[in-house]
Design a protein around this nucleic acid. Structure first.
Lengths: 353, 353
DNA sequence: TTGAAAGCGCTAACAA
DNA sequence: TTGTTAGCGCTTTCAA
């Protein structure tokens, strides 16, 4: 009972604290802290003593304690707000995450994944984001009517968007930072390729038109085909089911089409099947170009898809880097202000067009 | 200069603290804390006063401060240790994550995603896990020679495995908790279906045999075909490329096969293509059964794949629930000890067999 | 270059 | 039922 230790709860799973390291190394807490944080001004002798003690004890700093005083959390949230099944029917987000993870890892930041499932989640997410648990936010897949931007304005969290956000910014807002694929240019590439192949009745299956990526791809189509009749355009939703439906609709409205630009590989693959079932040959009767270049879909489609490649992993990496420049202003090599980024696309020619 | 506030750094983005709420509500810090944590014993009058103050100030508790004293973090790590591209060529992990996220969300826990990319990462991951930043760990995709288990033993973190771990436990270890699919039973389902269809020369393409899921699926095949010759078995790696190669090898070794069980849909789809290119018809000449039932692959294969369905999202959900029972012993409804779980599979019959 | 000491925001004994 | 008080483990002035 007289034992000091008996009164204290065991520290976290018996892990050593900074004080214990200090005692072992025969220095003060402050010195150990300096060594751990890598700040200058510790003599080599002492530093080595401390490092040895850290090694022997297996000391690992407690992040909670640290961020309580530094007001930094060493963590970044990734928020994916896509209630539809689409998210999980293609590896789009997985690739993004990989890119993000690589970059964050290099900066020693943790990735906290926030998935929005139902509208109820917005509340919880809002609380979390406001709770100063993360230093920044990477935000995906906004539909134009998404309630998230409002939440964000309150949280005042450094944020980078994946894909150009679609809402009208009010004059007071800072411009949103984003990383996007050149969707419009990519669509132009696709349509130009179809034109080069001699196609003249070129239809398109769009994504959901409340997303900028879908809108931009349609805009690219229209750039080259300003006079396309409405019957050549069908709205899909980036899913296979939506692609099938849109393709069937096109075939009904314009049975004489000889080219198709589908705004995603998933929809293109579905269209391929509908075309096949209708007795049309690809590419002989109808040439098809997709978008994304998602390998298991595009390369293994029947026939393999000609498609517009976007580098998703690179997008993720750049998003992370942009966010880092926001929350660690000194760290980044570039001196200038951070800018939104538009990544180029390129055409991958396989057999469908 | 005489101002108190002038000496203090602004608190996190100007966010109110517990003290400010207390002052505003005219109560003590402790009372506010009681209200916030929902612990009993606060009069209704005071509670309402506090709640009003919280509302007005927009107070959100600082998690770092809280976990510093509670020694709980309100976060769970998901560690995916799969250096190969496979992870990102099928939606396997995305589905898992969704299930996990749902369950964790309900328990108000955050999901911290840890991705292992290169061997160097193990070090960082080990440090993170040891740094008491998370309350538990969900661990995926262990190969039998994975260095992770050793790291874990040191970290002493409550852990649930996705898929039965493959290493030999030493007697001293607690048995590992895991959630797995009945891989062996599923494989039996697949082979039995081929037998029922009258196939007699049934080959299999396995996964990488340093993973238990692959080993178990092969065991299921052998259960029904104990006399299968070695030439009917080819090792793949769950990827499309590996599936193609294995299929080509099988065709060479045993050109007369009339049935195939591929241990993943991705490999089955690749095999389909090789079979097609070799002039064989599916299912007439060779009937094919896959494993997973990953929709965009299985349903859209040519022809659509008959396959063994495993409920991946449910696996994720159960993993999370199991972990919760470990780290919140009181909370779970079941009184008993936590057990490893084996999920059933079922055959989805489409056109390939 | 080093150490002493204050305090980050919160919870949880303990007292009242 | 409420308030007082003592830290959780760490960084960071400030003095020595």
């Amino acid at each position: 009972m007289g034992e000091e230790a008996a009164h204290r709860p065991p520290n976290q799973a018996g892990r050593p604290t900074l004080d214990e390291v200090a005692e072992r190394a025969g220095v003060s807490r402050a010195t150990v802290s300096r060594v751990v944080t890598g700040s200058a001004g510790v003599r080599k002798v002492l530093r080595e003593k401390v490092e040895a003690a850290i090694q022997e004890l297996g000391y690992v700093p407690n992040l909670a304690a640290r961020s309580l005083v530094t007001r930094r959390n060493g963590a970044v949230a990734v928020l994916i707000s896509e209630p539809e099944a689409r998210v999980f029917s293609d590896p789009f987000f997985a690739q993004h995450l990989r890119g993000i993870s690589k970059e964050l890892t290099a900066a020693d930041l943790q990735l906290v994944l926030l998935l929005v499932d139902s509208p109820d989640d917005y509340d919880r997410i809002g609380r979390y984001l406001a709770g100063s648990h993360v230093d920044g936010l990477l935000l995906f897949s906004l539909h134009t009517n998404d309630p998230l931007p409002a939440l964000l304005r309150r949280a005042e969290l450094p944020t980078v968007f994946g894909g150009r956000p679609g809402w009208r910014a009010s004059a007071a807002d800072r411009p949103a930072l984003y990383v996007d694929t050149d969707n419009r240019g990519g669509a132009q590439l696709a349509v130009q390729h179809l034109l080069d192949r001699g196609r003249r009745r070129i239809a398109t299956i769009t994504g959901p038109l409340d997303q900028t990526s879908a809108m931009d791809r349609l805009a690219g189509y229209r750039d080259l085909l300003p006079d396309a009749e409405p019957s050549l355009i069908a709205e899909g939703d980036f899913t296979a089911a939506g692609g099938s439906k849109a393709m069937a609709q096109l075939l009904e409205q314009a049975p004489d089409i000889d080219g198709l630009f589908a705004a995603s590989d998933t929809m293109a693959a579905a269209a391929l099947r509908v075309l096949h079932d209708s007795g049309r040959r690809v590419p002989e009767d109808v040439a098809v170009v997709g978008f994304d270049d998602i390998e298991p879909i595009a390369a293994w489609a029947e026939p393999p898809l000609t498609t517009v490649r976007q580098d998703i992993e690179e997008m993720g990496r750049l998003m992370a880097r942009l966010l880092l420049s926001l929350i660690q202003p000194g760290t980044m090599s570039e001196g200038g202000k951070p800018y939104s980024i538009m990544l180029p696309t390129r055409l991958v020619v396989r057999q469908s067009a």
